[in-house]
């Protein structure tokens, strides 16, 4: 019986730790996405799906679904990174499309 109680206690503690870690990971991912999106916005090339993913991340975070918040934030960051790469490469590539 005593043993059982210990196991339960350990499990609850473990869950609590995992929960706290999830919260931290989600917060870190959201901050990472926000930083990348700021660069994309400065390059005038923010993608609407990045905004949508970021909103979903914030909403999941507020609802306590940290796994979803982290996944959505990582998607927002990846989309922002792709838009930054696009904007930077277009700075020279656009000229190839001009009729001459």
């Amino acid at each position: 019986m005593k043993r059982m109680a210990l196991v339960v206690a350990a499990a609850v503690l473990g869950l609590g730790v995992a929960h706290a870690a999830g919260k931290v990971d989600a917060a870190r991912a959201i901050a990472g996405a926000a930083a990348k999106m700021k660069i994309a916005a400065a390059l005038d090339d923010q993608w609407t799906p990045a905004i949508a993913a970021f909103k979903a991340a914030k909403a999941a975070d507020a609802a306590g679904d940290y796994a979803k918040a982290e996944a959505s934030a990582k998607r927002a960051e990846a989309l922002a990174a792709a838009s930054i790469a696009q904007a930077r490469s277009q700075k020279r590539l656009w000229q190839n499309a001009v009729p001459r």
Binding site: P49, R75, A78, L79, A82, Q86, L93, N96, A97
Partner: peptide, 13 residues
């Protein structure tokens, strides 16, 4: 093909 108008479905997620 650099001049294609086809979107990059994978690269752009």
């Amino acid at each position: 093909n650099p001049q294609t108008v086809m979107p990059a479905f994978g690269k752009n997620l």
